[in-house]
Amino acid sequence: MPGNARRATMAVLLAGTVMVAPALGDESAELVIDGQVFVTRTEAPEHMEYVPEIISGWVFRSDETQAVQMDDFDNPGMLYVDEGLDLWTQVDGEAGESCASCHGDAESMAGVRTQMPHVNEDGELWAMEDYVNNCRTERMEAEAWGWESGPMLAMTTMISYQSRGLPMNVQIDGEAQEYWEQGRDLYYTRFGQLNLSCANCHEDNYGNMLRADHLSQGQLNGFPVYRLKWAGVGSIHRRLRGCITDTRAETFGRGSDELTALELYVSSRGNGLSVEAPSVRN
């Protein structure tokens, strides 16, 4: 699609259907949970050419949605943390092991989320789900969990929660570089009939309204997130698939190399933002 036509598409998407006043929250609000202050805005990492400041998706949500995340009791994502803690000590599989028998306390997972996805010993880029399933199948001799299954979501939410408040810090150089470049290429590729790239929405238009939705920078520091729309927690790949499908394109499978590379690149655009898992979004 030529540039003018694409701009026209965006203009229609952005303006045409806003029927009601947007549900804007307080953009200067501070995210504080139990006295802990989260970094929701900070200077963009060096590799980002077009964006001066990176901003958490929390900032763009309405007052009511923001409030649900500010109190751990109100946040239904914490139910998944509780369930993950139970699973952590449960023996499963032929080897008779639980996660705790090797890793000790769940707190030992602090920091893990900030570096996901990262390259494994064999030089492959793995998401957190891949590491969990590798421990289950290779080390516990248990069955792999489905990417979007209840126990996987509970476990990844609980592991991510152990890093809550720590800055995202994925590696983008060295052995990670080729994956990161693949992810960056995907980020700037226009998909689907609408011929839109991630950047068209989340880089060029964050802060604007898309239909009735307040566009954020499409950051991943909140994941796994509890989405009001899903009435549950969902994985990073679920959200990425949804965003690609929305451009009316064929999309990649959960756990595919493409989505994991895209996850790495998008995560690196949030390096410096606090992990918020489990965050709450609309």
């Binding site: 009791f73 914490m78 139910l79 509780d82 369930e83 209840g150």
Partner: peptide
């Protein structure tokens, strides 16, 4: 199965 109540008072 698996229903979890949480209470804060």
């Amino acid at each position: 199965e698996g229903v979890r109540p949480r209470v804060r008072v």
